[in-house]
């Protein structure tokens, strides 16, 4: 059953990659990459049970953290690159976070 799960995970990751290639907007691509990353975490966890090496779970844990940080980082880049018509409201809500995470 674990082997079948790995196969299903790989199929899902390929489907996510197809969506990332098709686009059409940058946000669709980021969404697909986010799904890809989450599935990678699960894939690592399943693989570590197939191999019988529970210490690989640490890698999955670290990958979950990195995935979240990288997705949010990429999003902030695109949000503020095209954010010139942002009129006040959104900008103000984001200022405190910017001090903590930005610099």
């Amino acid at each position: 059953m674990l082997a079948a799960t790995i196969l299903a995970l790989l199929v899902v990751m390929v489907l996510a990659l197809v969506r990332a290639l098709l686009g059409p907007t940058i946000y669709d691509r980021i969404l697909a990459v986010n799904v890809f990353g989450t599935k990678t975490v699960v894939l690592i966890a399943v693989i570590c049970f197939t191999l019988g090496k529970p210490e690989f779970l640490d890698i999955a844990l670290v990958y979950a953290l990195i995935n979240f940080v990288s997705v949010v980082g990429v999003l902030r880049y695109f949000e503020f690159r095209s954010g010139s018509r942002d009129q006040g409201a959104g900008r103000h809500e984001y200022t405190p976070g910017e001090g903590g995470a930005g610099s």
Binding site: I26, Y27, V41, A64, F78, E79, G83
Partner: peptide, 27 residues
């Protein structure tokens, strides 16, 4: 550790979705 992974995915997934939707608002 599996519990921690689960907890972490459940906490970060809405945050990432919201960040995505919020960023799309500026487009």
């Amino acid at each position: 550790k599996l519990g921690l992974i689960l907890l972490f995915i459940f906490f970060t997934s809405p945050a990432a979705s919201h960040a995505l939707a919020k960023a799309a608002q500026h487009s």
